[in-house]
Design a protein around this nucleic acid. Sequence first.
DNA 1: TCCAAAGATGAGTCTCCACTCAGGTTGCGA
DNA 2: TCGCAACCTGAGTGGAGACTCATCTTTGGA
Lengths: 173, 173
Amino acid sequence: MSPELRADAQRNRAAILAAASETFAEHGPKATTEQVAIRAGVAVGTVFRHFPTKQALLVAIMKESLHRLIAKAAESTLFDFMTEIVDEAVRTQTVVAAFTGPQLDIRDALMGLTEEMRRLLEQAKDAGEVRSAVQVDEVMALLTAAAQAAQQGGWSVDLRRRTLAIIFKGLAP
Amino acid sequence: MSPELRADAQRNRAAILAAASETFAEHGPKATTEQVAIRAGVAVGTVFRHFPTKQALLVAIMKESLHRLIAKAAESTLFDFMTEIVDEAVRTQTVVAAFTGPQLDIRDALMGLTEEMRRLLEQAKDAGEVRSAVQVDEVMALLTAAAQAAQQGGWSVDLRRRTLAIIFKGLAP
DNA sequence: TCCAAAGATGAGTCTCCACTCAGGTTGCGA
DNA sequence: TCGCAACCTGAGTGGAGACTCATCTTTGGA
């Protein structure tokens, strides 16, 4: 589909993605393009050759974050998965940014995450761990709220566990 | 304490505070100083004469927001108060900004809010509406999380009610 | 090996915004 | 009423950060 990239271009693109992933995870979306370029061992112009805008690069990273999460959902349970996502949000700022991102591509990935949540939710209901009246949007709302606040408020592991415990009790029958 | 302001200066200061309150409530902390100045019918220089930095002005507004909330706590119950705060957060962006603000002055006001929450929490425990094991920091964490997410996610009234209902159930005995 | 096209470079442009200050205006005490 | 200190004004300064592009370098097919 894409007209083959030259070898050096491929190398640089990979380096930029890796660097952006780390940089945005660490400093959030407000990290500069130059920070990414330096970390990738490349000039700013090169970053813009591969990604037309900083936003486009960010979106690529956020999608990657979400897809990594979605992949983990397969072999998990609702409560474990929610815990994992909140923990991941504290680790990498990109996750929370993705939850708030208005970009179309991200909306799609978020929809994918929602689908997985729906599946885990049904599973939890069948196991009698969650009230049958609970809806997915409520679970997603609670999840994004906890993830966002945990990250921005610098919640300790302990506080995260206790807060989630209250939420889980709220979901239980 | 302060050396009397001239009449016009007093008028302008009041206009600036009112304008800033509306502007920041509407557009959040990223609103520009010039937007505030225009709304106050004043030149930018005047804004900076009354408040040394934009941050200082923002802090003044955020403190005001918090104190207004604290005042309402007196004649409310825990669950009603939490609902009210989340609703207010959706209305005025300043509230959420205050929850995340690292400024010292705000930390003080937040402490005041925490004290009120502690009081309402004890009251709710006595009424048998909340488990005695629940701690204030957990309640504050859940509150800020819901407020922040509701505001940034544009939660509908309905979703806010349903989400809070789950949290309340999680707090109940 | 050679060279044209693809790619890389990084100083420079552009835009936005907080903040300043020289010069004009106004309130108010004497 | 006068005079001046307190105020106000808004064009200008400085810095940050996204993005560009003329110029140089590298790749890979002939």
